[in-house]
Simulated assay, not measured.
Amino acid sequence: MPDHFYGGADVILNFSLKLMFAQGRLFCRFSLYKRYRAMSTAPLDVLWYKLINVADVSWHPLFSKTNVPLGLIAKPGLIYKAVTRLTPIPVRLFVENVRPGELLSLRVLTIPGMEQKITYQVESTLCGTYISYSVTLKGWLSPLIWWLIKPYSARVATELAQAAEQLLA
Rank of each mutant, 00 (worst) to 15 (best):
P2K: 06
P2F: 04
V11E: 01
I12M: 12
N14Q: 15
L19G: 14
L19S: 10
M20A: 13
G24L: 05
G24E: 02
R25T: 09
L26N: 07
F30E: 05
S31E: 15
L32G: 00
R35C: 15
R37Q: 15
Y49V: 04
K50H: 07
K50S: 15
S58C: 05
P61T: 01
F63V: 03
S64G: 11
N67W: 04
L70H: 15
I73G: 07
A74W: 06
G77M: 15
L78Q: 01
Y80G: 10
K81W: 07
K81M: 12
V83E: 11
T84K: 03
V95R: 06
E96W: 01
N97P: 02
N97D: 11
N97Y: 05
R99M: 13
G101K: 03
E102S: 03
E102L: 04
L104R: 03
S105V: 07
L106Y: 12
L106H: 06
R107C: 02
T110V: 08
I111F: 09
P112Q: 09
E115M: 07
K117H: 03
Y120H: 14
Q121M: 07
V122E: 01
T125G: 01
T125L: 02
C127T: 14
T129I: 08
Y130F: 15
Y130A: 04
Y130N: 05
V135Y: 02
L137T: 00
W140G: 10
L144D: 13
W146A: 10
W147Q: 10
W147N: 06
I149K: 00
P151E: 02
P151F: 00
P151N: 02
Y152C: 00
V156H: 00
T158P: 03
T158G: 05
E159G: 00
L160P: 02
A161T: 05
L168K: 08
